[in-house]
Computed example of a mutant assay.
Amino acid sequence: MAISEYQVTGMSCGHCEAAVRGEVSQLAGAEDVQVSAKTGRLTVTASAAISDEDVLAAVDEAGYTATRA
């Protein structure tokens, strides 16, 4: 298992969390996606390595920006 953490900016509510979770969960290999609007933390647990670029693109697709934590 590979665990990656990111800091997401712009989230303020549960809807924001759901949008990010929905996009990131679609990535191949994503097993578990935890996201918190309160802390801005995004944690991705994957069965295979997922590139930072893919995760950041998925967050961007949801309408937010992120950086590797």
Rank of each mutant, 00 (worst) to 15 (best):
A46R: 15
L27N: 04
A48P: 11
T39C: 01
E53L: 07
I50P: 04
V55D: 01
A57V: 06
S51I: 12
S25H: 11
L27W: 11
A30Q: 14
V55G: 02
A58G: 02
Q26T: 04
A46M: 14
A62H: 11
S36K: 03
Y64F: 12
K38Q: 11
A37V: 05
I50V: 08
V24Y: 00
E23Q: 13
S47C: 07
Y64E: 11
A62N: 15
A62C: 10
A30M: 10
S25C: 12
E23M: 13
A37E: 03
V33R: 10
A66T: 07
K38R: 13
A49H: 14
E23Y: 04
V44N: 08
G63K: 14
L42K: 00
A57L: 05
E23F: 02
D60T: 08
E53V: 13
D52T: 05
G29V: 12
V55F: 00
S36D: 02
A48N: 11
V24D: 00
K38C: 02
V59W: 12
L42I: 01
A66M: 01
A37F: 06
E31P: 03
A30Y: 08
D54C: 09
R41K: 13
E23C: 05
V33N: 04
G63Y: 10
A46F: 13
E23L: 06
D54R: 12
D60I: 02
L56V: 09
D52N: 08
A46Y: 11
T45S: 06
T65A: 12
I50A: 05
V44W: 10
V59S: 08
S25L: 12
R41H: 05
E61N: 13
L27E: 06
Q34H: 04
T43C: 00
S36R: 03
L56H: 08
E53M: 09
Q34T: 06
G63P: 10
V55L: 00
V33S: 03
A57K: 13
Q34G: 00
G29S: 13
R41Y: 00
S36G: 00
A62K: 14
Y64D: 05
E61M: 07
Q34D: 05
V35K: 07
A48S: 15
A57Y: 02
K38N: 05
L56I: 09
G29I: 15
A46T: 09
D52R: 11
G22S: 13
S51F: 05
E61C: 04
S25D: 14
R41N: 06
Q26W: 04
D52E: 09
L42M: 01
A30T: 12
Y64A: 08
T65C: 02
E53S: 14
E23D: 06
K38P: 01
A46I: 12
G22L: 10
Q26G: 00
S47A: 10
S25F: 13
A37Q: 02
K38E: 12
A66F: 02
A62S: 11
A57E: 10
V55I: 09
D52A: 08
V44H: 06
V35Q: 08
G40I: 06
A66D: 01
E31W: 11
T39Y: 01
A46S: 15
E53D: 15
G40K: 09
Y64L: 07
L42Q: 01
